[in-house]
Design a protein around this nucleic acid. Structure first.
Length: 124
DNA sequence: CAAGTGACTTTCG
DNA sequence: CCGAAAGCCACTT
């Protein structure tokens, strides 16, 4: 059958910002990903800063797991002690993600998307 | 259109 | 391991 109508998500119509939001939304509970990884999975390599920009501009109507996005070294993007960092730490703790000194062990919690996700949600 | 800014990343010391 | 500097990209002024 001709694949004129795409199954599920039609990435072609989505703006880069929407792709980023969708990608972040696919991070499973209990896992985390870096800004660069999100940009890469969203099909926007080298735009890690743009991911941060989009998360800051995310509509209030969207409930996005922004707390699962960390820096490349596993550190929280906000300085320790700030309300944002504390909130993110709490949200991660609720998902059984261990946070020590404003930092997360990416080796343990780093998200590695399976083929199902790559082919169904992030298929470019 | 040039300069400044930022929820980033990598390299160097 | 940690801090500083440079590189990078999209947006704002």
């Amino acid at each position: 059958m001709t694949k004129q109508e795409s199954t599920g998500t039609d990435s072609r119509k989505l703006t880069p910002a929407e792709r980023i939001w969708h990608t972040v939304g696919f991070i499973p509970k209990g896992s985390v990903a870096s800004y660069g990884k999100i940009a890469d999975l969203a099909g926007l390599p080298g735009r890690a800063r743009y991911v941060g920009y989009c998360l800051r501009n995310v509509p209030a109507s969207l409930t996005l797991p922004w707390h699962r996005v960390l820096r490349s070294n596993g550190q929280i993007a906000f300085p320790a002690g700030t309300p944002q960092a504390l909130t993110q730490c709490e949200l991660l703790a609720d998902e059984q993600v261990l946070v020590q000194n404003n930092r997360v062990n990416l080796k343990l919690y780093g998200w590695e998307p399976g083929l199902d996700v790559l082919l169904h949600q992030l298929a470019f």
